[in-house]
Structure formats: C-alpha cells, structure tokens
Amino acid sequence: MKIAVLVKQVPGSESVLPINEGQSWINEDPVTFVMNPPDNFALEEALLIKERKGEGEVVVVSMGPNRVQKVIREGLAKGGDRGIHIEEDEPIETDPLLIAKRFAAVLKDENFDLVLTGLQSDDTGMGQTGVLLGEILGMPTATLAIETDIQGESIRLKRELESGWFQWVQFPLPASVSIQSGLNTPRYPSLKGIMGAKKKEIKTVLGSELDASSRSQSIDKVFVSQTSKQTEVIDGDVDVAVQRIAEILRSEIKVV
C-alpha cells in the first residue's frame, strides 16, 4: 500500500497577516507558518491506513519555497517514510490547475495506490487540488471522507453530504481522496520520531521543470473586507460590558 499525502504550509491561525506593499499577498516576514490543519488529518489517516494494513509506505509531498521542508520533516517525524519537495520560487502559487499539474508530474511515475489531501487550505482555500490531481492521473476521486476502509483492491468511504447527511461510496484503487477535518485525532511526533526524521530522505524537484504551463487564474489583490453593517463595539472594562449586554438583551432586542 503506497500512499501519498499532500501537505501545505500555511500561516497559523494566530499569526499576524500584514498585507504586502504591492497588495498582491501578505508580507511573510513576521508570519508564523504551520502545517495546514486539514492536511494534518489527511496525514494521520494515511498513517492509520498503513498501520491497519501492517505494511506500506507513506510519502509526504509538499510544494512551495524552501521553508516548506519544515512541514515535510514534521510529517516524517510523525511516521511518514520519505518526503518529496516541489520547490517553487514564488512564496505562494495560487493557480490550482498549475499546482495539480506539477504534483501529477511528480506522482505519476511513483504508482501510488492512494493519494490523500486535506479538505482545503487555510490560505487560499481553493479546495480542489486532490480532485484535479485525481482527474489528471486518471483516478476516481471523492471529497469530504470521514471514514476510510481499504477492501482489497478498492476503497470504501463514508462521505459527508450537507445538512447532516452521509453516504458510503466505493471505487477501485488507485484513487485520490480528500479528507474531512475531525475524522481522527492527529498524533504528535515522538522524540524518537523527531530524531529518526532527520535521517529520512526528502527529494527536491524544481516545480518549473515539471510543468511549464502558463497560469490559468491568479489572485491579483488582497484587502481587508469593508463591512456595511453598523456595529456597536463594546471594549474595555468587563463589568461595564456586562451591564451593556444586559441592557441590550432587556431593552433593545427585548429577549429577557
């Protein structure tokens, strides 16, 4: 069982996000980066599938500038067997088709049985890389899996639909599946894992040499959203705030 997990490095949810000078993206300098939280669930699911089978290989694949080696190393510390880094000059590539083509170029000769991705990235939130990649590699795909079950040469999985509905689907391997967050409890790396990860291989390939397609879409500008709603901001002393909320509930919305 050979499994590829795609992990992205993204700004942490607590990080500052200053807009850069050209307003094209954020200024990365003060940003703290983490493994994209949805991808952490995909990584955990890959490790669990390997452990249940008792054999296999989990390959952690990431795309981006040099800094993304940190999340690959984190994946290896948790139990990944080796890593692949698709190196990009740009701090962030925002075109999902181009991203998927580059991943596909790296993965196609590896003959993976299963490709796992997170639901979407916390930075650009395009939510389509795993499905694009599946189509390019000729694999069946499914999204929002909350339970996986490998059955011989096929995979059976429980998908989340909307409004509390679910559905089981099954298709043959190889396949590309995106994982819904919350389906497992991602592990922390052990000290032994961290030490061991230093010796594991990370292969680096240049993104521009994998696929030279031109960009099909791009993020041109980022900005702070303008709210049209009149908001009363209550800030400062707790007791004053409490009195004001009580008054709002009693006299303005009249629910008490």
């Binding site: 996000l17 650009t124 939130g125 031109s214 879409q217 791009s218 993020i219 041109d220 500008k221 980022v222």
Partner: peptide, 19 residues
C-alpha cells in the same frame, strides 16, 4: 477587479481573475 473570495481563514478578501 475580479471575483472576490475570502482567504486566510476569512481574515482577508482577495480578488481573483481568470487568465
């Protein structure tokens, strides 16, 4: 300028265009 979507955990908006 383009199509607006939220990015970075809804902290910022982005305008996106097709090429």
């Amino acid at each position: 300028e383009g199509f607006v979507k939220q990015v970075l955990n809804a902290k910022l908006n982005a305008s996106v265009s097709s090429e």
